[in-house]
Computed example of a mutant assay.
Amino acid sequence: MTSAFAAALTRVEGSVLDLTGRLVRCPSITSDTAAVESALTELSSYLADSGIEVDVSRSAAGAPMLRARVSGPGEGVNILLQGHVDVVPVDEGWQRDPFGADVDGGYLYGRGTCDMKAGLAGFAGVLRALQSCGGPRRGSVTLLVDADEETGSDSGLIPYIAKHGLSEYDWAICGEPTGLQPFLGNRGLLWVSVTVRGCAAHAGIPGAGLNPVPVAAELVTDLGAKGERAEQTPTESNPLTITTFHAGTVPNSIADTAVFTIDRRLQPGDSADAIIDDLRAAVARAAQRHPSFEFGLDVVKRWPPCLLDENSDLAQAAYHAADSITGHASFGFDEACNDASFLSEAGVPTIIWGPGDPALAHTSDERVLLDDITRAMHGYGRAVETLLSVT
Rank of each mutant, 00 (worst) to 15 (best):
D148V: 01
T113S: 15
R111Q: 13
S140R: 05
D104A: 13
P98D: 12
C114E: 12
V145N: 07
T142I: 07
C133K: 05
D102Y: 11
G134T: 00
V103E: 15
G134L: 06
G134P: 06
G156I: 00
F99I: 00
E150N: 12
G112K: 08
K163T: 13
E168D: 14
V126Q: 05
P159I: 03
D102H: 13
Y109D: 09
G106N: 06
S153Y: 08
D102S: 15
S167V: 02
G165L: 04
E149M: 12
P136Y: 02
Y160T: 01
E150A: 11
S132P: 06
L120F: 03
T142H: 11
G112W: 13
L130W: 09
G152A: 08
E150Q: 13
G106A: 08
A101T: 07
G125F: 01
G134Q: 08
G122D: 09
C133L: 12
F99P: 00
G110R: 03
K163M: 12
Q131Y: 08
A101N: 09
G105H: 06
G110T: 09
K117Q: 14
G139H: 00
D170N: 14
Y107Q: 06
R138T: 10
D97C: 06
V141D: 06
G165I: 00
G139N: 01
R137I: 08
G152N: 10
L130I: 03
A121G: 09
A124T: 01
K117T: 05
A121C: 08
D115R: 04
A121P: 02
I161H: 10
P98H: 05
E149D: 14
K117V: 05
V103Y: 09
Y107T: 00
Y169W: 11
K163H: 13
Y107P: 00
E168L: 07
K163D: 15
P159G: 10
G119I: 02
S167C: 09
Y160L: 03
P159A: 07
R111A: 14
T142P: 02
I158R: 15
D154M: 14
G119C: 10
A118L: 11
F123L: 11
R137Y: 12
C133R: 01
A101D: 12
F99K: 00
S153R: 07
V145M: 14
P136S: 04
C133N: 03
D102E: 15
R111E: 13
G119L: 06
K117C: 10
D115V: 04
Y169C: 04
Y160N: 03
Y160I: 02
S140L: 06
S153L: 12
S153C: 14
A162S: 13
I161Q: 10
D154L: 14
L166R: 00
H164I: 03
G139F: 00
R137V: 13
S155W: 05
Y160C: 04
S140G: 10
A124H: 02
F99Y: 14
L166D: 02
R137Q: 15
E168H: 07
A124E: 02
A129P: 05
L144D: 04
P159F: 07
A101V: 06
D148A: 08
D115Y: 09
K163I: 04
W171I: 04
Y169G: 00
D148Q: 05
